[in-house]
Design a protein around this nucleic acid. Structure first.
Ligand SMILES: [Mn+2]
Ligand SMILES: [Mn+2]
Ligand SMILES: [Zn+2]
Ligand SMILES: [Zn+2]
Lengths: 144, 144
DNA sequence: TTATTTTTGCAACAGAGTTGCATTTTTATT
DNA sequence: AATAAAAATGCAACTCTGTTGCAAAAATAA
């Protein structure tokens, strides 16, 4: 957690590490991600910031964060795209989110289960795996 | 596999089992799915049928097939939606595709690995799993 | 402070998906 | 086989999501 001040400093540091200008948009969107306990989609960001930013800016900001390994996408079966902040192992052009994602059918929240490891999958002969995504749906601990 | 005649009969039977009218659109789209060795998205269906059907009809057909448990969706991290035919265990309103999906980074094909089982995932306390989706990306056996 | 680089907002556009409704096709009934 | 009832299709119009070019504004470097 941390105080508002501390979070703000962490965000500034993160942006500078990633060689990104520290702008109001980027800081506010990163704050949103850090406050939220679940993944966010584009529309969440638009509504939760109170329509203060242009849609285009939000799209570009998310793309920039993806490029720099600050956030990652979570697979869905609908056309929506969900994003969550990366913990540590991720870097520019090389995402390694070896954790399971959980989508609650009751509250709709998608969370990163950072402690839950992805098991080995033995593929048929001839297939080479680079990345494994696991999305579990069910009921989360708060909805239980 | 089977001859054209046999496939046609199987499709008719499948539609009747699902209590669906046997229409040209539905038969042609199901043929496409059965011929294809990978998953299809909406645009594939439009192009591969030679623009003969209205977009709206294709959307409605896919939705109907989903509702009846004839096809299932495959999760992606982009906004595209991929569909593949269900094998057997699936029925109306209850999809159980306990198999792994593979997306080839080389040829772009998404395939159902029907023999590859999904391992048990031990979630944190309080979480209840209803369904587990696994999507592996890498290089498929034909591209290797 | 000033110059340079980067980011933002706007406008305009492209594409994906949805809905209502009239027409056509399929299925059920006689 | 003909007819009636039900279901599916195609079209038009629309909404929603995401993209691109460019001028104005903001952030960083000098
Ligand atoms: Mn995650
Ligand atoms: Mn499948
Ligand atoms: Zn929940
Ligand atoms: Zn391949």
């Amino acid at each position: 957690m941390g105080t508002k001040q501390q979070i703000s400093e962490r965000i500034t540091a993160l942006l500078k590490e990633s060689k990104l200008s520290v702008t109001e948009t980027r800081v506010k969107i990163l704050e949103l991600f850090m406050k939220s306990n679940g993944a966010l989609e584009h529309s969440d960001i638009e509504t939760q910031t109170g329509q203060s930013f242009d849609r285009v800016t939000v799209y570009r900001t998310l793309q920039t964060f993806l490029d720099k390994g600050i956030i990652h996408k979570i697979p869905t079966t609908d056309t929506s795209v969900r994003y969550a902040v990366c913990k540590s192992e991720c870097s520019e052009h090389d995402h390694h989110d070896h954790h399971v994602h959980f989508k609650c059918e009751s509250c709709g929240t998608t969370t990163c289960l950072d402690e839950t490891n992805i098991p080995e999958i033995s593929l048929p002969k001839g297939y080479a795996a680079h990345n494994v995504e696991v999305v579990v749906s069910g009921v989360c601990k708060t909805c239980k």
